[in-house]
Structure formats: C-alpha cells, structure tokens
Design a protein around this nucleic acid. Sequence first.
DNA 1: CATTATACTTAGAAAATGGTAA
DNA 2: TTACCATTTTCTAAGTATAATG
Length: 749
Amino acid sequence: MSGDHGHGDSQVNSGSKGSDSHKHKDKHKDKEHRHKDHKKDKEREKFKHSNSDHKDHSEKKHRDKEKLKHSDGSSDRHREKHKEKDKDKEKRREEKSGYHTNSTRSLHLYASRSVTVSSVIRDTVIVNISVYRFEYKPKKVKTEHDKKAKKRKHEYEEDEEDEPKKKTKDKKGTEGKKSKKEEEEKWKWWEEERYTDGSKWRFLEHKGPVFAPPYEPLPDKVRFYYDGKPMKLSAPAEEVATFFAKMLDHEYTTKDIFRKNFYKDWRKEMTSEEKSKITDLNKCNFSDMNEYFKAQSEARKQMSKEEKLKIKEENERLLQEYGFCIMDNHKERIGNFRIEPPGLFRGRGDHPKMGMLKRRIRPEDIIINCSKDSKHPKPPPGTKWKEVRHDNKVTWLASWTENIQGSIKYIMLNPSSRIKGEKDWQKYETARRLKKCVDRIRAQYRDDWKSKEMRIRQRAVALYFIDKLALRAGNEKEEGETADTVGCCSLRVEHIKLYPKLDDQEYVVEFDFLGKDSIRYYNKIPVEKRVFKNLQLFLENKQPEDDLFDRLNTSILNKHLQELMDGLTAKVFRTYNASITLQQQLKELSCSDDSIPAKVLSYNRANRAVAILCNHQRAPPKTFEKSMQNLQTKIDEKQNQLSAARKQLKAAKADHKASHDDKSKKAVEVKRKAVQRIEEQLMKLQVQATDREENKQIALGTSKLNYLDPRISVAWCKKWAVPIEKIYNKTQREKFAWAIDMAEKDYEF
DNA sequence: CATTATACTTAGAAAATGGTAA
DNA sequence: TTACCATTTTCTAAGTATAATG
C-alpha cells in the first residue's frame, strides 16, 4: 500500500484555515444537542449484524439507525462506564532493566524483524548516495562520558579532520581538556535507584529566579508622535509603546487583531490625559522609537571586544549564581531561570489574543518551591514571594500565573538533569513496551472497526489514524481563547475529504487541517475500505464544523489505551513510530562503504523520514536561496580546482615519464594526493548541498530531541564508527548522556 | 459525569554565538 | 578586522495527560 504524503503541497504556517473560526461559534451548542439526541437511544446504536461482511446494504441499515438517532431522544455519549475500575496507578518499575536485556540481542535479530509502520515514508524517495564512497579508516568512537575519554586527545584530533570548519588547534585543545576535567564530576544518575514513592526529590535548594530588568525610560530626543505632533508619554504608557515600536518590522503589527488587542491593553496603561488625546492607533507614529532601538542593537554589535567580554562575564556570573540548584546532593542546571520579561503576546497562527500585553512579573507573583531544610531563596529587597512551599511531588522550582491565558508557568531543570533524563528514558521504555504489543493492539482496533457500537468504531478509527499517521491526540480547547487548531480526536468534518476513487487509488482520505502551532497538515492517503465506510458513516448528517468523532475525546481514548497496556497513551504511538522508523530507515540506508559524510547524510535522511512522518515543518529560512547559491558557487569553484589539479597531475606524470627521476616521481605523488583531497572536498560539498536542499522545509531538531530514542543513534554511531559529535552537538550530548553511556552497537529499540 | 487546575513535554521562531571569507 | 552566515541556544507558546473539583 502506498500513499502520498503530499507534503510537497503543504504550506507552513498557513493561517488560511483559521479564518473561518467564526463558523464554530455554535459548535458546543450543536454538540450538546446531539448528545441529547442520543441519550435514550443506546440500543439503536448496536448493530445487529456481526459485520463480517461489509455489504453496502448493511451499511445502509446502519445509516438509517443513525438518522433516527439524530432526530430524537437524548445523549448517551460517554455513558459507557469502564467497568474495570482504576487499576492501581502503580509505577512501572520494570522499565529500568529494559535496556540490559535488550542490549544483549544480536545483530541478526535486528535484521530479521519486520516493521509494520504502514504509513511511514513509503514514498518519500530516499536514495542513498552511493556515488560518494572513499576510503575510511575505522576509528574509535569517542564519548565524553566514557571512562576512557581522558586518554583520547589523539583520536580527537583525527576525528576533527572530517570537519573542514573545525580546524583550529586550540579549540581542540581546550575542548579536550575541559571534557576531561568535567567528566570526572559527571554523575551517572542512570546507574542509581529511582524513587518509587512518587516523590521527585528529597532536597532542593536554589536562589530563585532572575527578574526582568526594570524599564528604562527613553531619552527625551526619542519621540513618539501622535497625529504628526511629538508627545511625551508617561513611563507606563511609554514602556508598552516601546514593545510595539520594537516589533514594527514584524508582520504582527499589521494584523488587525494584534493592533486591536495591543491598543486596548495599551490604553489601560495610559493616564487619563493620554487616554483622551490618543484615540486612534493609526495616528500613532512609533518609527522614531523603532529606529532608536535599531540603532541600539547596532551599537551593541559594534561594541569593543572588552565591552562584549564584560557583558559575557556578567551573564556568566548570573548563570553561576542563579542558573543552578542543588537537588539531592547534585548541582543541576536550571532550564529557564530568567523570568519572562513583559511584552506583547505573540501567539502563533490566528490567535485571538495576539498583541495583548504580557504583564511584568513581580516577586509577589512567584511561588517558590524548595525543601524545608534548604536555604530559601531571598526575594529582592523590599519584596515578598507570593508563597514558599515544599512540595517534593513536583519538579518545579518556581511558578507564576501568566495573564494572557491564565496558565501557570514554571521554572524547571535543564534537559541534562537527572529529573528530566529519567523521565525521558522512561518515555522510550514505554514506547518499547508498546512495540511488544503493538500487533495485538492493531488487530484489536481493526476488529473494532466492525463493532456494533458507534463509540467503539470511532475510537478504533481515531486510533488507526494516530498509529498510521502519527497524529496528535487532539484535546479539546476552549473556543476563542486560542488559535483554531486540532488533533485527531478534535478533527472536524471540514478537515477531511473522502474520495472513493482518486486517480488510480481507491478509498482515499484527504486531510487538511492546522495542527499544533498552526502548522498545516496536508495529506492524501488511501485507507482500508472498512475505515472508509466508517468515515462515511461518521460524516452522516453533520455540518462541516461538527466533530468527526463526536463520541470520542482524548480522555476516553486514553482510558481505553491504558487498559490495553500500562502507561499507554496516544502520544506513545508518536514516540514509538518515530523511533521504529528511524531504526528501520537507518538499517536500510546505511552502507559500510560510505564515507563518513555520506553516512551522516544517510542518518539525516532517516531523521528526515521521521520529521516528515511527524509533520515537523519550518518556514524555509529567509536566506535559503542565497545560501544554496553560495554553496553552489563553492561547488563550482571546487570543480574548477579539481580540473586544474588534474591537469597538473597529468603534466607531472608526463614529466615523470620523460625524466624518470626521483624528484618528478615525488611530484606525481604530491599531485595525486592533491587531486584526491579536492575530490573529497567536492564530494563533501555536494553531500551538504543535497542535505540542505532536502531539508528546506523540514525541521529535524524536534524529532531528534523529543521522539527518537537516542540509544538508536548512539548504537548506529558505534556500529558504523561515526563519531557521536556528527550526530549530536554539545547540548544534545549532555541531554543524552545516559544513552551515550549505556547503548552498545547492538542496541535494539 | 463534566469542568477546571496543574504539571510537564513538545514546538518553531528569534536571538546569540562564533567560525570563516573577504 | 569586519561582515556574513551557519549553527547553537534561548525563548516561550502550545500541546498532552491526569488529578482535583463540583
């Protein structure tokens, strides 16, 4: 079966779909209405036929019942109770041993497993570049966290040769030394016991967050003009005006909603005189302010080295003082120790609240979390914390409530910390457990497509989409509070189109909706007949703005999944399918004869396959075209160099033929080497160009960081003798230290 | 049951950094 | 040295999941 992933057509950040959100105003009402219609009709929901045959007439009967349901009675949605009552929320301890058992599996197992992620990249043409091959001497893979890392300076240097850019000698030197020194203190939390009582820590001490610097009024020469006349603003009004002025070049400031929201909140900061004077945003001229800020940032760039160094040192000091905490005897890096500064809210997509004022956070807004027996952080002089609590069932150090959505923001640890790492590891172990039972689960949902209960069919079809297409769960969202985006369970009728026949394919479903971050998901995919028929059924008597799965939500789905496997939720499918795809693609694409750059390209292509599956898109970089051109220029130059070098080689050979002396022989060798070197360089450039072109609209980072079991990558690096640095940068190596330390070359996901 | 609150993961854009070519 | 550019880091919005509440 092959489907068209169709991402070629897809549009990044398309806001076009959100524009009809007004249509959904009555959605909830409608839904409720529908519930009621269903209530007394539970029996009718059952199908008489067992449905082993799927003849049209049986579908027809079903439709008739549905019609009945839509016209009377009341709701039974969500009524079916899960009889199996809450199995104990026992923590899953067995996971810890997971990798030990698996790491002993041999390579042939790796090769014989058949993966059934049907949807995955069937048609993303991934061709290994076998053209580029040349000699490669196996080297020891380096890992900073390896015990032996200390002795490895020499190898380090060898490895660096692969990367044309990193040739500076002292960089190598310092990096080598640094990793030696730090490595001695590296704590292998993954070799320790975990808490089993639900507590996250025993001891927690930190210095509290760093607040945004206070507002500095503009110099008098920087003017704000209203209706063409200069006007001095009060400090609070001026501050908010600067937020807008700083964004003048951004498209946001041209959007009606943004301007409206900004203006409304700005007025709240104005004095009564200002309020009465300023009555129209269109008469406000911020361009002088805007230019001032541009000049400022220009000046910052032009600062002398010393000044820059001073700033850097100050930042370093702040980091040292506030950027770490002590958690259970270990110093751990904090992720975001700076409180978000005030500004204008930048929602993504068609966000109804864009432009609203994000207010300044004060100590009085902050809840501190730390252990009782720690030195509590001091609030800035003359201020107080909102609260100091000691809750070791949570991982955050500080929190505050944000004023746009009223949600809570947290200060938490860096991904390299034990507390994040353990959780990450556990996530992949859950996904690996899914691997063991995914066949069973798939069989079950296929079976459920035939269920006599509507809710079961919907659940089964939704799960099929989540599994096959790696869709997100799709929680309900409050209308009007956020951009209109959906996931699987919240898909609406308007988001899919059914084609009984399309070109030469049957039963094609076209998806077109905005997902998380208002990234468009567009895909045309053939599905099984039974799925198709079910979808037709779900669409009966519905308006475009009605829910496709009106008897399903994420809570119902996840409760069901929990019964199928401990710890199973919708998002586990994404993790599982992403990781298994990487593993499978790596196996398919890797070629031992390839050079390191070619291998890395293969890795990136496997990574890309996953990113496409998960629909991780990015706006093509503004400078993309130019940067491709630059690269092409380099390639052309290199080609010229090559032909020149070849000519020289030829000449040298001729010379040698004539003279047959030692000197000319040497010259030939020298030229031959030169040609070889240039060929390699050219190859590298070409690989780079290919990689970049393929990556134009695809973001690899998200999947690499959040979906791919790092042990797969580490194992691959070991197996093919690719230095881990080619795959993970420093930050990523810190985050995945546990995987780098524990995974061997035969690790299997 | 439905709704709301809470905690934590996942996400792309923008800013900062730092190496390299001019 | 500077300007440019790719890569890395930071930022914080936007999801998921589930517990608490009514």
